[in-house]
Design a binder for these strands. Sequence first.
DNA 1: CCTTTAGTTCAAAATATTTGAACTATTGAA
DNA 2: TTCAATAGTTCAAATATTTTGAACTAAAGG
Lengths: 103, 103
Amino acid sequence: MARLIHPAKDSLQLEHVLAALADANRLKIVKRLAAENGCMSCVGASPCTDIPKSTLSHHFRVLREAGIVATEKRGVEHRNVLRLADLEERFPGLLPTVLRNAA
Amino acid sequence: MARLIHPAKDSLQLEHVLAALADANRLKIVKRLAAENGCMSCVGASPCTDIPKSTLSHHFRVLREAGIVATEKRGVEHRNVLRLADLEERFPGLLPTVLRNAA
DNA sequence: CCTTTAGTTCAAAATATTTGAACTATTGAA
DNA sequence: TTCAATAGTTCAAATATTTTGAACTAAAGG
């Protein structure tokens, strides 16, 4: 399996972050992650989105490669955690503002 | 010519706004608009982006239909103005935060 | 080992973006 | 009033991205 790509904090691009958040399903995932202040597996996200797992996998990849989540393999499941501190350092106020304005 | 579409303030969608801003060229245009606190025509935007006018026209359409700019026909040119007040009412803090974080 | 579970990867279909070319509308000049 | 110039839109074809089912991989538990 190809290694999961996690861009370094300093190389995060604003456009990538915005593009990752500019999708209803991904925004919903990020909102839930933020609300639960925790981690979420693909299967964990499934109930709230109702989309196939290959699509979900793709969405988590977009979030990961934009630097919004970190994915850690834990046994058979992958735990996705918000990179809150990195995002806040790189783009101060961005995620809170977007989430505050998310439906 | 089909009328230019300007969504009402209350019908603006966060995802549309984020998607419109999640593009290097459009972000550049919006930044310049904000910096000049003024208006910009397609041709006016051209020098800073170096992309064909049909593409530029498309980008302004995306910005317009997301509710980020209002386009007004003035003689032979179209003046695009940021909908700052509408955006601020609908999504408080969003545009300033994005622009503050834009390269 | 075999099965189950979680997720990735692949490839094809559906969708969106980019762009040159043709078109429309307004202005200004002859 | 007609002609040319300018600004921008619209169309359609090429290109790129997204979505998804199906096949695959990897870990855990019997």
